[in-house]
Amino acid sequence: MIETLLIAFIKIVIVLLVLLTAVAYSVYAERRISAFIQDRLGPNRVGPFGLLQPIADVVKLVFKEAIVPRNANKPLHDLAPVISLTVALATFAVIPFGNTITLFGEEVKLIIADVNIGVLYILAFSSISVYGIALAGWSSNNKYSLMGSLRSSAQMVSYELSLGLAVVGVIMVTGSLRLDQVVMNQTNYLFGVLPAWNCFVQPIGFITFVVAAFAETNRQPFDLPEAEPELVGGFHTEYTGLKFGLFFLAEYAHMIVASAIITTLYLGGWHLPYIDMIDVSPMLMSIIGILTFVIKVTLVLLFMIVIRWTIPRFRYDQLMGLGWKVMFPMALLNIFITGLILLLLQ
């Protein structure tokens, strides 16, 4: 019993440390890449290639004064960023970042919480994250914050639907809500050559899910909750110092978690195609699995960053129109087609 707890604890600590570091460096990556796209160089002064910039940023944010507006609801104002970050990090608990690894004669599953309803857990937690933003907007007692959080709520409700329905396709193919089962199902090959990743098995569902995930993480082109030209800073207008930093971290943690979910559900998770044709030791296999997962997540993350600097922001009515008139029918169509094919294959 104590051993299981200890293993779980160690896994949590490692994953949390890696995740927070990755969050800090995704901020750096975003700034550098955006600069490169715009013919600039970006932060390159702190350390070699500016690699210590995240540390400087965090130190700066920690030492800034935390201002609470006079008529703000202080408990909720303090609580909102915590909810945002906690939810973003907690979602990572069910994502398998590798198969199994044998350490000191003990077989360890590379997933923090091996629950049998992993997909539902993810959907549930991504819904809670709207509370962070909604409470932040409401408790700030500021019209821009409130507008931002209202937009966010409407957007999340609209896109949650297509997100959930897109996942239904994956669940139908897999026949299980376990995320490790979803990954295992993608280790086969289509027609003997193509890896049976869900993005090839159901391309419509994949596109729907990716677009909805962008909207869920409030990323461009769907970053209406914090549309700078219209809403000052959106829901975090009234936040300063460390609390603003938490929102900032939460945004990037959301991005990483979204990339991890996309990787797990549609891009084969930790599985490197064609590796099982070569004979490798199980230890090396586990390490390759973890590395594959990290590389896949990084690539999806870079894609998200580049998209931000490519596509302009949608108008609000366009956003709603896209959500209800395009994404929703597409997700339904995907379920219908998947069901039809599964029926024919039987």
Partner: peptide, 13 residues
Amino acid sequence: GLRLTVSKIFKPK
């Protein structure tokens, strides 16, 4: 659009 932005990344600044 992506082709433009990605190609920009590798061009001289």
